[in-house]
């Protein structure tokens, strides 16, 4: 038996970063487990869940809307409700918003162009499960690649989220017209987070940055801690 914490990565039809996410999680100490979206249960001993990037269901209807109803998402909801750490990356963020597990929604980029480049993101809250390996106000370099990454919510909701420290990451530059430059948010309970940048593409300096590894390694820490919680 491996002593590495199990991190489940859910593959939806149209996911395309599931294997990259699994590889990157393995590189930072996890035992990744790919889970097909039709699975009604997560693998035994799952310590954390990653919803990967991609274009689930071809972005039909609204990005993430169809995937949010997949059988595996029922298991993810249960896991999240029990305090399990869940990280949604890009399309995974869109799915978590559509599943109402995170506030807001991701809309088409203001400039109507797909954006694909390394960007700077600032850590607004370094106290979360996912950012504990970062320092406050640290600037991370992580790539984005999305056409619908403009986060939106009512102004009043944004004010409330900022007050509660739920805006975890902000863009350090204009990327997509996201309200308040929001790049990543966390739920009120602090165990479900979504972000548009792709930490799994930034775990090796050879590829330009290893900053994404800080977020994923923190997730693996959280997975190990959650695994120790008696069921």
């Amino acid at each position: 038996m491996s002593s590495r914490p199990v991190v489940a990565v859910v593959t939806f039809p149209g996911s395309n970063d599931d294997r990259d996410a699994a590889w990157a999680l393995g590189a930072v100490g996890a035992e990744p487990a790919l889970v097909w979206h039709e699975e009604p249960e997560l693998p035994a001993g799952t310590g954390a869940v990653v919803l990967p990037g991609g274009f689930s269901y071809g972005d039909y209807l609204r990005t993430g809307a169809i995937a949010s109803l997949a059988p595996a998402m029922t298991a993810v909801r249960r896991f999240a409700a029990s305090g399990g750490p869940v990280l949604g990356i890009c399309n995974g963020f869109q799915i978590l918003c559509e599943a109402r597990l995170l506030p807001g929604v991701l809309r088409p980029n203001r400039q109507l162009e797909f954006v694909c480049r390394d960007i700077r993101v600032r850590v607004e809250n370094a106290e979360t499960l996912f950012t504990r390996r970062c320092s406050a106000d640290q600037e991370l370099v992580i790539p984005v690649k999305h056409g619908e990454g403009a986060w939106y919510a009512d102004e009043a909701i944004l004010v409330q989220l900022v007050a509660r420290g739920q805006v975890v990451l902000r863009y350090g530059e204009d990327v997509n017209g996201s309200l308040g430059s929001v790049a990543g948010v966390i739920n009120e309970a602090g165990n479900v987070m979504g972000l548009m940048p792709h930490p799994e593409h930034a775990v090796d300096p050879l590829l330009g940055s290893a900053d994404g590894g800080l977020l994923l390694a923190a997730l693996v820490d959280a997975a190990a801690a959650h695994t120790l919680v008696p069921a």
Binding site: P108, R110, L112, Y152, G177
Partner: peptide, 9 residues
């Protein structure tokens, strides 16, 4: 009041 980039295009 919601920005509609597709409509603008």
């Amino acid at each position: 009041g919601i920005l509609d980039p597709q409509g603008d295009a």
